[in-house]
């Protein structure tokens, strides 16, 4: 299958290894990945902060860039949710953006949806001999309704020990510009999430959204915790070959 990658601006700029892992994983599974060069950002930050017109411009760009692709992978739960959930709200009724968004939005998928629902695979042949806790990010859980798809994928990874994260469903406190507009509450939520993660004894905290992981990871590093954060794609891309190397 030919899959268009919307890597997202955050992954593109700060977490390229997540995009690389997606490419590695999908090619390993025998699929073709394309990267439409005109892509930039879904507009989530502007939308969530109240900058509607800027978000609309970015949305127009997104739907134009991905108009001709049947399957669009966004390895970020909140970006996928932005397109699917908010583009219809962002477009004035009957507008071109509205029609284009209605076309494109349903084709935009998170990685776990792509793998489980479209490609019909839960065992991707990964090997990751570590203890892992999974944090279901809010937009992945509540807006996309990912359910247990990420967990099913993780459970199928050889060598991986999945441990339960206490209060897993509670927000990590990132929330985009919330993290800097309300730093005290955001940090308090982040520290509680980090404490719950640390309590699992896991080596790795995994999620489907690097924005949340940037926040939690920032707290963990500040605390000099030995725990790492990793995007689901990076774990699923890991194989025995790499582990030996």
């Amino acid at each position: 299958m030919r899959i268009a990658l919307f890597v997202t601006c955050v992954n593109d700029t700060l977490f390229p290894r997540t995009g690389q892992a997606v490419v590695r994983l999908l090619e390993r599974l025998g699929h073709e990945v394309v990267f439409p060069a005109g892509q930039t950002c879904c507009g989530q930050m502007h939308y969530n902060t109240g900058y509607r017109r800027d978000a609309q411009r970015l949305a127009v760009r997104f739907v134009e860039t991905f108009a001709d692709h049947d399957v669009v992978l966004a390895p970020s739960g909140s970006c996928a949710a932005m397109v699917r959930d908010n583009y219809p709200r962002l477009a004035p009724a009957g507008s071109r953006l509205g029609r284009a968004a209605a076309e494109v939005a349903p084709r935009v998928l998170d990685l776990s949806e792509l793998l489980v629902d479209v490609l019909g695979v839960t065992d991707v042949g990964a090997y990751f001999p570590h203890r892992v806790a999974y944090h279901p990010t809010c937009h992945g859980m509540r807006l996309l309704g990912l359910g247990d798809r990420p967990l099913r994928l993780l459970r199928a990874v050889r060598g991986l020990e999945l441990v339960e994260l206490p209060d897993a469903e509670e927000c990590c406190g990132f929330g985009g510009t919330f993290a800097v507009k309300n730093p005290a509450v955001s940090a308090a939520m982040g520290w509680d999430k980090a404490r719950n993660a640390a309590a699992t004894g896991a080596e790795v905290l995994c999620a489907v959204d690097n924005s949340c992981l940037m926040h939690i990871g920032g707290v963990l590093r500040r605390q000099r915790s030995g725990m790492r954060v990793m995007h689901l794609a990076e774990i699923l891309a890991s194989t025995e070959k790499e582990a030996v190397r």
Binding site: D12, L14, P16, G19, Q20, H215, V219, R221, R222
Partner: peptide, 15 residues
């Protein structure tokens, strides 16, 4: 309260 992520040497699109 939080560390910043390290800026990678190469963004995804260049890779």
């Amino acid at each position: 309260t939080r560390d910043l992520p390290e800026i990678p040497a190469e963004p995804f699109r260049d890779w």
